[in-house]
């Protein structure tokens, strides 16, 4: 899916792992009306719908720095550690991630398995 073709009337972000879709209003590193805030990656963003009063942004997801797959920021789909990694890539290169992260993921996997069984 091409997300950054800004010409399409309805710009939709879709996570290629979990299928979450949402319209997005901005793609880039500098969310509008945010002054000092800069993102460390190019992101799909929308106006935060959960605080309708204020002009807040919400990052939906971005492309995996390794495989460029489009993934959402949900914990099951991607991980940011200086760069964005999709979960597939994280698992492939798990050994290169710090211990803290490895332990965390192992714990999460365990608990989700427990929930399934």
């Amino acid at each position: 899916m091409e997300h950054n073709t800004t010409e399409t009337p309805q710009k939709t972000f879709t996570c290629q792992l979990c299928g979450l879709t949402s319209p997005f209003t901005y793609y880039g590193q500098k969310p509008p009306n945010t002054r000092a805030i800069v993102l460390l990656e190019e992101c799909f963003m929308t106006k935060d719908p959960f605080c309708p009063e204020k002009e807040k942004f919400l990052v939906l997801g971005s492309n995996c720095s390794l495989c460029s797959m489009c993934v959402c920021v949900g914990l099951d789909c991607s991980l940011f550690y200086t760069k964005r990694f999709c979960m597939q890539c994280v698992n492939k290169h798990l050994d290169q991630f710090p211990h803290q992260i490895q332990a965390e993921l192992a714990k999460k996997r365990q608990s989700s398995q427990a929930a399934v069984s």
Binding site: I37, L39, T82
Partner: peptide
């Protein structure tokens, strides 16, 4: 011989944040 992700050597929780504030 695997791909090098070029991750920082020391873990820091702040590496997990994709936002920066700078003026």
């Amino acid at each position: 011989g695997k791909v090098d992700l070029d991750l920082p050597k020391d873990y820091d929780a702040r590496y997990r944040i994709n936002v920066s504030v700078c003026t």
